[in-house]
Amino acid sequence: MAIVVGILCVLVIALLGLVAAFARDRAALQRRLADTQAHVAQLEADLDAALRPPPPTNSAERAVRRVIRTASKVRSHGIAGLIQSTVEDLQTWASDDERADILNMAASDGTVTLFFSDIEDSTPLNDRLGDATWVKVLAAHDRVLRTRIEQYRGQVVKTAGDGFMVAFRDTEAACRAALGIQRDLPRDVTLRRHGPVHVRIGIHTGQVVARDGDYFGRNVAMAARVASVAHGGEILGSDAVREALDDDAAVVLVERDAVELKGLTGEHVVWEILPPG
């Protein structure tokens, strides 16, 4: 009997030891699991931080982010996307000082000359060139436009993809800037190598509503629509542009057939703008 009791005591002690060892192992396993989960969470946070670009520090960076998000939409819908999109879709990327300059472009009655442009058939061109080359083409295109815009004291109101909206105080200056752009584009080394790149430009003069560094109203839509009926390499102006130009303006206007402009009632006379001679 004593032997049996002794054996039972040994078994109980051994069982208690196993239970204690199991409890220790379970606690250690739980600690390792918690450490692993914390490590995974930290790795996920680090990866998310690495993949997430830092917040933009200035208006130009904010503009780049917005343009990247809207570029494909604008390329798909053409210049009309600049008007049909909401203000949130299109970034007014100018600084505070530049916004003031943009608003100062308009006369006291709100009259300003607006210039819209985009690259004709940009989506198939992008597809043919590939994204890496397309970025270089866009950079060269932007450089040509901005050089002439600055020369004739225009102010870029906003850009999206390959589309530009520009304000000029003087109608002739807008026309001469457009003519300079069309001359310079075929001469650019990058565009000559990967082109041809055909840009269509529309110009209109009229009263606009100014707000937060941007322009709104029927005349903004008119300028965009005039650009939309141009072919690549062409500059078209509205009848208001013809009326605003002096008789001795250094441009030639050739009347085109009246056209319908989407969203605007009636037919509208447009003029092709050509260099003198």
Score class of each variant (00 low, 15 high):
Ala2Asn: 11
Val5Leu: 14
Gly6Met: 14
Leu8Ala: 15
Val12Ser: 03
Ile13Trp: 08
Val19Trp: 05
Ala23Asn: 12
Arg24Thr: 08
Arg24Tyr: 03
Ala38Thr: 08
Ala38Val: 09
Ala45Leu: 10
Ala50Tyr: 04
Pro55Val: 10
Pro56Asp: 04
Thr57Met: 07
Asn58Trp: 08
Ala63Leu: 04
Val64Asp: 11
Arg65Glu: 14
Thr70Gln: 15
Ser72Gln: 03
Arg75Cys: 06
Gly78Tyr: 00
Ala80Asp: 15
Glu88Thr: 09
Glu88Arg: 12
Asp89Arg: 04
Gln91Gly: 10
Thr92His: 04
Trp93Ile: 02
Trp93Leu: 01
Arg99Thr: 01
Arg99Ala: 09
Leu103Tyr: 04
Asn104Thr: 04
Met105Asn: 01
Gly110Ala: 06
Thr111Val: 14
Phe115Met: 08
Phe116Asn: 07
Phe116Met: 03
Ile119Cys: 10
Asp121Ile: 00
Thr123Gln: 11
Leu125His: 04
Asp127Arg: 12
Gly130Cys: 01
Asp131His: 08
Lys136Val: 01
Leu138Ala: 11
His141Asn: 10
Asp142Val: 03
Asp142Thr: 08
Arg146Asp: 08
Thr147Gly: 09
Ile149Glu: 05
Arg153Glu: 07
Lys158Gln: 05
Gly161Asn: 13
Phe168Cys: 03
Ala174Ile: 10
Cys175Gln: 12
Arg176Thr: 06
Arg176Gly: 04
Ala178Trp: 10
Arg187Ala: 14
Thr190Trp: 01
Val197Gln: 06
His198Asp: 12
Ile203Ala: 07
His204Asn: 09
Thr205Cys: 10
Ala210Asp: 03
Arg211Met: 13
Arg211Leu: 14
Gly217Val: 08
Gly217Trp: 04
Arg218Thr: 11
Ala224Lys: 02
Ser228Ile: 11
Ser228Trp: 03
Gly233Trp: 02
Glu234Tyr: 06
Glu234Gln: 15
Gly237Trp: 09
Ser238Arg: 01
Asp239Ser: 14
Leu245Gly: 13
Leu245Ala: 08
Leu245Phe: 08
Asp246Ile: 00
Asp248Met: 09
Ala250Glu: 15
Glu255Pro: 12
Arg256Gln: 15
Arg256Lys: 14
Arg256Val: 03
Asp257Tyr: 11
Val269Gln: 12
Ile273His: 03
Pro276Asn: 04
